[in-house]
Amino acid sequence: MSSLNNLLLPAVLFFALGFIARLIKSDLRFPPDLAKVLSIYLLMAIGLHGGYELAKADLMMALTSIMWALILGFSLPIAGYLGLLLTGKVNPMDAAAISAHYGSVSAGTFLTAIAYLDNISVEYETYPLIMLAVMESPAIIVGLILAVKARHTLAAKEGSSSSEDKAQMADDDDENNSGFGALLREAFTNGSVVVLTGSMIIGAISAPSGMAKLEPFIDEIFMGVLCLFLFDMGMVAARRIGDFRQVGPVLALFGVVMPLFGGVVGAYVGANALGYGVGGTTLVAVLGASASYIAVPPAMRLAVPEANPSFYLTLSLGITFPFNVVVGIPLYHNLAQAIVA
């Protein structure tokens, strides 16, 4: 029943329309940067809204949520990495890059989940929004550490010939890639984190009268923009699914199993560790289940050039994102109902 509800959500239907438009080779094209523009709007709107609500919230609860967001953000990519190595289908570099995507989060999926909960009139806590902001970054760091480790292992395997390469690389001109501090800075200053955290602070400290004027921007057009965003993302996902053959069935299966695993872990964290209601628990499950496709891919391209972008883009955009939007969200909602009750 509830899964039918999700399928009939306008935003999800637009996702399907985008997907179909691409499959039937329609000449429909969105401007190249539209998805990025729209995601900035979506993060701004949800950040303002959430910050305003959070200003009234309990500080201890917020801090506990942040702590659990960090725990999830650091541990999920490690679980994903081990899972990927077990499949024997990818090298450690690819495994590191892919798992960074799965530890991080997708704001698009999160917002679709909010649309879903709104649609069936389920109340939800605002704390998961802070978790969304916190969980963008840790997985990038874990992915980079795993990649550095894999790089050392590979270099050691190749033996003496690589020491010369290393010496050559050491005098390379891009020092900004090598320092760990720089990596941390990159992970925590990425655009989505700045927009979301900044908007939450603005929402929290703004005068209520000023926020009331923003109402049309934050609330009234929100669902329409989400439709447009998912319309675009449907086309992107359909374009990615074309690389399915390159990815292979085992990895494709990972793209479905990993979100289910993350969803179950997230649901238990939301319900048991954080004591959220059904709505909040659903949102934490979605955070655990979703895979990043905006913040992490460029970070991995830059820091782990050895990894194959087709793998992580196809998995996160072509498989996990559609799976979560269409099937996952109602599933996590049902799971949350079962655990909380």
């Binding site: 969105f30 190249p32 940067d33 539209l34 998805a35 990025k36 675009d232 993302m233 086309m235 992107v236 374009r239 690389d243 496709y293 891919p297 972008p309 087709s310 883009l313 955009l317």
Partner: peptide, 20 residues
């Protein structure tokens, strides 16, 4: 300049800025 095309890295379609 921004570019799209195909080559040894596959198709770089610059769709929604994901593979520019």
């Amino acid at each position: 300049v921004r570019a799209r095309g195909a080559g040894s890295s596959g198709l770089q379609a610059d769709m929604s800025g994901f593979d520019a």
